[in-house]
Design a protein around this nucleic acid. Structure first.
Lengths: 101, 101
DNA sequence: TATATTTAGTTACATAAAGTAACCATATGT
DNA sequence: ACATATGGTTACTTTATGTAACTAAATATA
C-alpha cells in the first residue's frame, strides 16, 4: 500500500465506517438496543457478515454485546458512547440523502 | 439480496458513500479542485480504482470533471453542489475520529 | 532519429472481501 | 422422534480490490 500524509485518525475512521454495512448497522442501533435477528431482518445483510461486522464494532468499542441466557438465547447489541457519537454522522448522511437522492 | 423496509434513499447513499475510498475522495476535494495525480498522491489508492470511483461520483453528480487540453493533458475534478453538501458528513467523521480514535 | 518525460488513464492478473446456502447447539413444545 | 427458534458458523461461489505493466499524445533531450 502507498504511503501518504493522510490523517491516521481519519484513515482509521474510514477503515471502519467505510466498510460495507458498518454505518447501516450503527444506524439501526441509534434508537436503542436490538437483537441479532432484528438487525438481520432490517438490513439486506447475511448472518455471516452481520456477525463479522458486529465483532469488529465490538472490538472497536462502538457496540456492546449483552447475552441473556434464556431459551432460546437472546443477544442484544447497543451503542456505546463512542457509537452514539456517530449519531451526527449518520444523521448527516440521512439528511443529505433526503435532500439530494 | 434480501428485501427490507430500509429507506431507499439512505440505502442508495450508503451504496455510494459506503464504497471504499469514496468518502476520502470527496474529502480531498472539499477545499477545491484537484487534479487526478494530486488525489492519487494524497490517498493510498491506485489509479485503477481512483478512475473507477471518480467515474461513479461523476455519474452521481457529486463530482465534476474538467479537461484542459494542454500538454501534457490536465484534468481537474471538483465537487458539485451535491458534493459540497457532503461537507457536513465528512466533517462529522473527521470530528468523531479526532474525539474517539 | 531514437529515446525520455509527463499526465491521465487502461489492461491483465492475483488476492481479498462479500454473497449464498446449508448446517450446528441449545432447550422447549407436539 | 420431530419441529421450532435463536445466534451464530462452515464451505463454496462470485465480486471487489490491489498490483504492476502498459498506452496515447505532445514535446524535450541526446
Amino acid at each position: 500500500m502507498k504511503e501518504t500524509l493522510l490523517c491516521p485518525r481519519l484513515s482509521k475512521a474510514m477503515e471502519l465506517l467505510g466498510k460495507r454495512w458498518t454505518t447501516l448497522i450503527v444506524y439501526q442501533l441509534i434508537d436503542g438496543a436490538k437483537r441479532f435477528n432484528e438487525i438481520e431482518s432490517s438490513l439486506p445483510i447475511s448472518g455471516r457478515l452481520l456477525s463479522e461486522r458486529l465483532k469488529e464494532l465490538e472490538k472497536e468499542g462502538v457496540v456492546e454485546r449483552t447475552v441473556f441466557s434464556e431459551v432460546p438465547i437472546r443477544v442484544e447489541y447497543n451503542l456505546t458512547d463512542k457509537g452514539l457519537a456517530l449519531k451526527e454522522v449518520v444523521g448527516g448522511i440521512e439528511t443529505w440523502s433526503k435532500e439530494w437522492l
